[in-house]
Design a protein around this nucleic acid. Structure first.
Lengths: 214, 214, 214, 214
DNA sequence: TATGAATGAGGATTCATTCAT
DNA sequence: TATGAATGAATCCTCATTCAT
C-alpha cells in the first residue's frame, strides 16, 4: 500500500504492518464478542461495556474503532449479510442453465443454507430495527432481484411482473425460514421443509403464469 | 372475570362497582397510552414513566395494576392478538361451505384485514421478543390451525399433512404481510398483493396435492 | 390553588403541601450543593454526581428536578443575579433625589455591596460561559440601564448618549470589581477602592459632558 | 532560547539543528492547532487528541513536548500575552514625551490595538482559569505598571498613589474592552469606544488629582 | 388505593495519558 | 524520537421500581 515512501516515518515496514494487525485483531475481537452476546444473551445484553469486556478490550479501544454502539451492530449486520449473500451466490452460477423444476429445488436449498450461516444472529439482527434493518433488508433485496432475474430467464413462464413475483416469493420463503428458525430450529434440517418451499414456489409460478393457451 | 365473588365485607355493592369501574379505566388508560407510544415513538420510548404520564396516571398506580413493564406489553400483545383473531374468525364462518377457489381469496382478504387492525403496533410487538413473542405467535398458531382445518375440510385436495401445509402457508403469508407493512405500508391496499397471495396459496395447494393419479 | 376540588384525589390537603415541601427541599439542597462546590472547588468539580452527593440526594432525584447539568448552573445564576439585583435595587430608591456628587458614592457603595453577595460564585459563574453568560449579563444590563436612567435624570450633565455612558461605566466598574475580587479579595473592603470608583465615574461624567458654556 | 549549549556528545551540529528545527515545527504546529480549536470551537473541544490531530502530529509526540494539556494552554497564554505586550510596548516609546491630553488617547488606541491581536483567544484564555489565569494577569499587571509609570512621569498630576491609579484604570479599561469584545465584537472598531475610554481615563486622573489649590 | 418523590444500578461516551513498538 | 493503540476513570443521563404519605 505504501511501499514507495523512502525510509521516513521510522524505518521498518514491519511496524506499520504489526500495528495494522493489532488494530484488526481488536476490531475482530469486538465484532466476535458482539455477535456472541447477541446470539447467547440477546440484544439488551449487548451493551458496549459488555462487548468490550468479552472482547478482552478496554471500553476506550472499542470507541476507537466504532463511533457508537450502533456502528458495531451495523458492521455485524453487514458482515452477516455478506456471508449469507456469498453462500447464496455460490449456488447461483450453476442454476442458470437448469430447467425450472430442477432450479427451484436447488435455489431453495441454497436459501436454506444461507439461513444456516448463523440463524440466531440472523433473527436477532432482524429484530434490531433502527440499527440493522436497512442492512438486513439488503439480503432480501438481493434474493428478490436474483429471483426476478431467474424468472425473466424463463420466458416460458409468462410471468407478467417478475419483480413482484421475486419479492413475494422471497418474502414468503423468508417468512417461513425465519419463523422456523426461531420457533423450531431443528426443523431447518427437515427435508420436508425444503420440499414444501419448492412446492410453494413452483405452485406460485404456475399460478402466476397466465392460464395461457393451455 | 371475577363478578362471581360474593360481596365480601364492606357494604353496598355500588361502591365496589364504582371502584372496579375506576380500576378498569386506569388499566385501559395505561394500555392505550402504551400502545400509542409504541406505535408513534417506538419501543425505547415506552418507559413505564412515559406510559404513566401519557395515561394521566401516577407510576405508583401503574405498578398497582401491572407487576412490571413486561406485563403491560404482554397484556397489550394479548389484546392485539385477540383483535386480530376476532377479525379473522369473523370471516371464517362463511368460508367453510365455499369451494376452494372461492374460499382462499376470502381467507387472504381476511388475513390482510386482520393485519390492518394495527399494523404498526403489530410490527413493534413482533420485534419485542422476550416480552411478547410467545403471545404474538398465538395468532400465527391460530391461523395455521384454521388453515389446516380448512384443508382437511376439502378432502379432494389430497394434502398429506394438513398441519404442515397450514404452518407453511401461514408463515409464508405472514412473512409477506409483515415485510410489506414494514417496508412498503401503502401496498397493503394494493389488490395485486392480495392476488399474489391467493396465487401463492392456491399454487401451493395444487402442488402439495399428490401428482394426480387420485 | 386547588381548594375547590371536592375531596377526590385522596383527601388531606396536608399531603400536597408536604410533598411540595419535600420537593422544594430537594431543589434547594441541590442548588446549595452546586453553589458550594462551584465556590470551593471550581467548575470542573461540579459534576452532577458530585452535586447530588453533596446535596445528599440521589442522582435520579437531581434529574427529576433539573433537565441537565446546565439547568442547575442556569438556575443558580438566575438566583445569584436576582440577589445582586435586589441589593442594588434596594439602594436605588433613595438615590434619585440626591445631587450627583452624593448619588455616585452611594451607587458605588451599592454596586460593591451587590458584588459582595457571593463574590466567588460570581466570578465562577462569569467564567462558565455557555451555561450562565447570558444570565450573568442581565445584571450588567440592569446596572447599565439604571445608570443611564440616572444620568438622564440629571439634565445638567449634558451627556449626549446616556446609554453609552451607562454601559461604559458599568463595564468599567464591573471590570474593577471582578478583578479585585478575584485577585485581591480582601481589598473589596478597602475604602480606597470605593473612592477610586467614585472618582472614575464622576471624572468620566465630567469629561463626557460637553465642554459646554464653561 | 538555548542556543548556547555546547554540542554535547553526538556528531555534527547540522543534524542537531535539523532535529531542533523539526522539534520546533512540531511545537509550533501543536500551539497553532490548539489556538485554532480554542478560537473556533471553544475550550471543551480542545482535547489533547483533537489538538494532536489538527496539528498533524501523534499524541505521543504531543506529550513529548508538553507535559500535559495544561502546559499547552499555558504556553499559548504566554505567547498571547507576549504578543499583546509587544503591541502595547511598541506604542509606548513615543508616549513618554507627550503631554497627557495627547498621551492618553494614544495609550487607549494602543490598548485597543493590543486587544485586537486575537480577541477570541483572549476571551477564551481569560475564562480558562486554572490553566491560564496567572499568565493572562501578567498583561494587566504590565499595563498597570506602565500606566503607573506614566502617571509618575507627570508630576503635575499630583496623583497620590500612582500604583492604585494604574491598577484601577487598567482594570476599568480591561473590563470595558473584554465585555465589548465578547458581547459586541464589532464595536471594538467604533471610534466612540476609544473616545469614551479616553474620557474615562482623563476624567479619573482629573478627579484623582487633589482639588488643586487645596 | 393513589401519589409521586426517591433510588441507584447501569448504559453510552469522552479524554488525558501511557507505553510497546 | 515518533507513533498510535490501548487504557480506564469519570461524566452525563435514563429508567424500572420502591415506599412513605
Amino acid at each position: 500500500m505504501t511501499s514507495r515512501r523512502p525510509a521516513k516515518k521510522t524505518a521498518h515496514k514491519g511496524r506499520r504492518t504489526a500495528i495494522q494487525a493489532r488494530s484488526k485483531a481488536t476490531v475482530e475481537a469486538i465484532l466476535t464478542a458482539a455477535a456472541q452476546i447477541l446470539e447467547r444473551e440477546g440484544p439488551e445484553a449487548a451493551s458496549t461495556n459488555a462487548i468490550a469486556a468479552r472482547a478482552g478490550v478496554s471500553i476506550g479501544s472499542l470507541y476507537q474503532y466504532f463511533g457508537d454502539r450502533e456502528a458495531i451492530i451495523a458492521e455485524l449486520a453487514r458482515r452477516h449479510v455478506e456471508e449469507m449473500r456469498s453462500v447464496l451466490s455460490g449456488a447461483l452460477a450453476e442454476l442458470i442453465a437448469l430447467p425450472l423444476a430442477a432450479a427451484i429445488p436447488r435455489l431453495m436449498a441454497a436459501l436454506i443454507a444461507s439461513h444456516r450461516v448463523n440463524p440466531t444472529l440472523d433473527g436477532v439482527l432482524h429484530r434490531m430495527m433502527p440499527e440493522s434493518a436497512a442492512i438486513m433488508d439488503e439480503f432480501e433485496d438481493f434474493a428478490a432481484t436474483v429471483t426476478a432475474a431467474g424468472i425473466r430467464a424463463h420466458p416460458d413462464l409468462h410471468i407478467a411482473d417478475p419483480e413482484l413475483a421475486g419479492a413475494i416469493l422471497t418474502q414468503a420463503v423468508g417468512g417461513v425460514l425465519r419463523t422456523t428458525l426461531r420457533r423450531y430450529p431443528e426443523r431447518i434440517l427437515d427435508p420436508a421443509l425444503e420440499r414444501s418451499l419448492v412446492q410453494l414456489v413452483l405452485g406460485y409460478l404456475d399460478r402466476a403464469s397466465p392460464p395461457a393457451a393451455g
